[in-house]
Design a binder for these strands. Sequence first.
DNA 1: GTGCACTATGACAACGTTGTCTCCCCCCGG
DNA 2: CCGGGGGGAGACAACGTTGTCATAGTGCAC
Lengths: 327, 327
Amino acid sequence: MSDVARLAGVSIKTVSRVVNDEPAVHPDTAERVMAAIEQLGFRRNLGARNLRRGSTTGTIGLIVEDVGNPFYSELNRAVERIATSFGRQVLTGSSEENSDRERELVLEFCARRVDGILVVPAGLQHGYLVPEMRAGTPVVFIDRPAGDIVADTVLVDNLGGTIEAVTHLAKHGHRRIAFLGDSPDIFTAAERLRGFREGCVRNGISYDESLVSMRTPTQEYIGDAVKRLMHGPDAATAVIAGNNRVAVHVLRALAHAEQRPAMVGFDDFELADLLDPPVTVVAHDVSALGHAAAELLFARVQGDQSPPRKVVLPVHLVARGSGEVAP
Amino acid sequence: MSDVARLAGVSIKTVSRVVNDEPAVHPDTAERVMAAIEQLGFRRNLGARNLRRGSTTGTIGLIVEDVGNPFYSELNRAVERIATSFGRQVLTGSSEENSDRERELVLEFCARRVDGILVVPAGLQHGYLVPEMRAGTPVVFIDRPAGDIVADTVLVDNLGGTIEAVTHLAKHGHRRIAFLGDSPDIFTAAERLRGFREGCVRNGISYDESLVSMRTPTQEYIGDAVKRLMHGPDAATAVIAGNNRVAVHVLRALAHAEQRPAMVGFDDFELADLLDPPVTVVAHDVSALGHAAAELLFARVQGDQSPPRKVVLPVHLVARGSGEVAP
DNA sequence: GTGCACTATGACAACGTTGTCTCCCCCCGG
DNA sequence: CCGGGGGGAGACAACGTTGTCATAGTGCAC
């Protein structure tokens, strides 16, 4: 900046005035300064600016399990859209479902003085956030609640959705329904399992633990589980996939099966409608999830001090065929 | 920091020493400082630190068309992985295929003093980058080259891949092949079209412009194109989809067709193997693309001054069934 | 006892900006 | 001719850190 000032024959303050469009600058001077800026390729340092002004940095942090997962990337996109509309930029990070990594990312973002943080939490301990939140960094939890603190949270109706899935299958005559979920340490997985039990109860189906399997989904593990649950005299006639990745693994495991069991997935996914049969899913609006969370965050950024809110977004069952197969 | 210093009864310099793990601090003093830091919830301001040290900011910028598109989110993930291994964080932005937006994002990132920029360019004019690059911000172009400047670039073999696709279909007896691509303003789309023509030539197929359609893919437009090209006496017997989105639209348009033409897609996509018939694609390793670009960027960040490089990654045809259908 | 090396700490400036205050000059009214 | 007002510009401090240098105290060898 001082280089620009020297070249234009003015003080650095005047350069500052020009780059900030302040009024009290003579047009001729402004033009000289602009020319110097152009010539030197000067670009003002936003870090220094934010430091001096004590203003916000114009960034927010988003932490998800994996930015490469289509579910989270759709979330990312929705968040980015809102952030852009508020003139903010987004720092992203993948926690890899690892709470230490999550913590690291959050604290790093705080050190960068992001204006707020959106997080799909990996762990159950969020005490480390208390000082940061007290220091004025708003945090909104997405898709899963905070472990041990009270904070803004946006969730989907995992319980209701899974109950609906069970009811749908029961309506089509199924009494032996398998449930394949992600690790029960994950809130959504546990909640959907709870919905599964509740759905069984409501539909007069006796809950059979041997038809349930909860683990981090890999193709191998899901393949084994499908083989085990879908065969034998007591085989399940239908399966509920606890999330999009489980669903894909189940579909792949069943790709060459002669008799495909009925199936309902939780989470919609691209091409579900083009498979044979098309996959019935409990769908929810991932964009709406990101929207709601980002809107809530920016309300906080702009000073909303009301008590922490908990938003639960609705889900709806999309019947496409795979869930309407008879036992 | 001065609050911490006051509480611990030391100077701020000593606090600085403690937070930086500098050796010459008495353990007792360090402990007092740590306690004060804990008590006050102090976290050092990375912005100020970077300003003072004149060091890098520890961030890189990534600009893609749409972070929500699975293709780009996989890229994002690969980039993040490398960035993390270099201790950097990633600022992301979606250009929405709009060159003004791209420019805005790039300049904003530069103002934030990112250590480097990875960009899937939207436009063809990148002169605006020259001053930034001269000022020391390395830029690597991904998936498409820069319009009018020389810069590091990582591409995939669009030309070869499309030639391979045509040859594959020709081998299976097809002589009338349709090509549906994205807008020809996009480098990859134009390049693949070029590959299509070249493929026709090499296989002794007369290139028929009426079988080609290049436009931003929407379900409606692709549906119309499919209807037009696949019917009538001179109908195409096979179709090449120019990218993953075109492929999905084509599949949807053909979902209820009685006679499905042969099809090959450019870009692999999830579940392609589970459709009926499974979709033959020209696949390339998106992670490798991100990896290569990020590695190249960090080499520049660390001072590599060698002439701009152009890396072209190989593609390979994955025959799954849809491309092996007879005419 | 003096000099020296070493440890632990602090004072101060500087990074690149911008807010505040001050100054100068010119124009206009009386 | 003088005083006041306003437009245009600069000097200086400050934002939160850290690098450099200085200082005070301690222990040890001569």
